[in-house]
């Protein structure tokens, strides 16, 4: 019989496979902060905008929620990770900025410097 450590290794491999199956290896991964504080600052709307965009044909994007990283005064935060590039974290993302991030960054690959948390 397998011992717990062997079982957990299998479980982790399965979990990673499921994550990959959800499209983790997309060129761009987008994480939206969704803790109570972020939601209070409006991140639920931002999340919905990204979801709608994917439903309406935005491809090659892996979208996920995340907890609060502690950046209270700049919430809602959205992270965009691209393989081989330096990841980007946007602060104070409202509906308008979310739309622009989709149009400019996710579709055209342009980092919108002035909203990046430096």
């Amino acid at each position: 019989m397998k011992n717990p450590l062997e079982i957990i290794k299998v479980k982790r491999a399965e979990a990673i496979n499921r994550i990959l199956g959800r499209g983790y290896f997309s060129t761009k991964r987008v994480y939206v902060g969704m803790a109570t504080c972020e939601i209070a600052a409006g991140s639920a709307d931002v999340m919905e905008i990204f979801q709608t965009a994917i439903k309406n044909g935005l491809v090659d994007v892996y979208l996920s929620q995340k907890g609060c990283a502690g950046r209270c005064n700049l919430e809602p935060t959205v992270e965009v990770i691209e393989e081989g590039k330096i990841p980007v974290k946007y602060g104070l993302v409202d509906a308008g900025r979310a739309h622009e991030i989709i149009e400019r960054h996710l579709k055209k690959g342009e980092v919108i410097e002035e909203w990046v948390i430096q």
Binding site: N3, P4, L5, R12, A15, I16, G33, Q65, K66
Partner: peptide, 26 residues
């Protein structure tokens, strides 16, 4: 916090989640 999706156990497992428990039990 702020890295994995808290509502998905897969995300936690992928960052060595529950490995400490398995180590202790083994």
């Amino acid at each position: 916090c702020g890295i994995i999706d808290p509502e998905k156990i897969d995300d936690y497992l992928s960052v060595r989640g529950y490995e400490a428990l398995a180590k202790v039990l083994t």
